[in-house]
Amino acid sequence: MSSLFTYTLRIADSSLILGQRMSEWCSNGPTLEEDIAMSNISLDMFGQANGFYQYAAQLDGTKSADELAFRRNEREFFNHQLVEQENGNFGTTMVRNFLHDVFNFLFYTELSKSKDETLSALASKSLKEVKYHLRHSSNWLIRLGGGTEESNTKVQDALEELWMYTGELFEMDNLDTELLNNGIAVDNSALKLEWDIMVNKTLVKAKLTRPEEVYMATGGKKGLHTECLGFILSEMQFLQRAYPDAKW
């Protein structure tokens, strides 16, 4: 397996799993307008996942994009643990997405400068969508943080709960470093400073308190996950697994 293949797969996996989570909101949103908004975000994430899987499939040469998405096991998925976390209430979802949207915004901004032309093109396209996602989640954080006492408590609780999954976003392993040195990958650790500034700014506007530094979860890059992922995959992959000979 080439490093570039694995690197591409990691990006695709995070997009797919977040898209899957967002699609669970369909027909469950707090308003109809918001239901539509969340479906749009989900569709953007699936579109991004599809683009990166197509590229990974091309690099791999033996598996299709769908096989990559639907025929790998928990230990072979490399998404951030943050995106597999349960939707919880609407506030939990907005906090999770906000933390990831800020990262994605910074990540795709850098990846669009990659020497790998395909990654760069996919990143530029994704960046446009992510800018809107960030606007959406930030505005909701500000509304919920500044709304009622109940809503402020709910999003503050979600922030405390999810904070431990943010450390992983900035990790670099050997594979990242190797591709960084080739001008292909993004230096995740260098995004942390700007991420902190952007997150802090919105938290102030949203009347929320930045959580204390806590123990940070890790493992996504190695295919180590929380228990959430197994359930996501068993549901998502059901048909492909139950009817391995069928085409859909």
């Binding site: 307008e33 539509i36 908004a37 606007r135 505005n139």
Partner: peptide
């Protein structure tokens, strides 16, 4: 038309509903 509690939300909801 759309329903929204504030103007930013109104703009976003309009975008979601009428420019898909």
């Amino acid at each position: 038309n759309v329903h929204a509690s504030d103007k930013v939300m109104a703009l976003d909801n309009a975008r979601e509903l009428y420019t898909r």
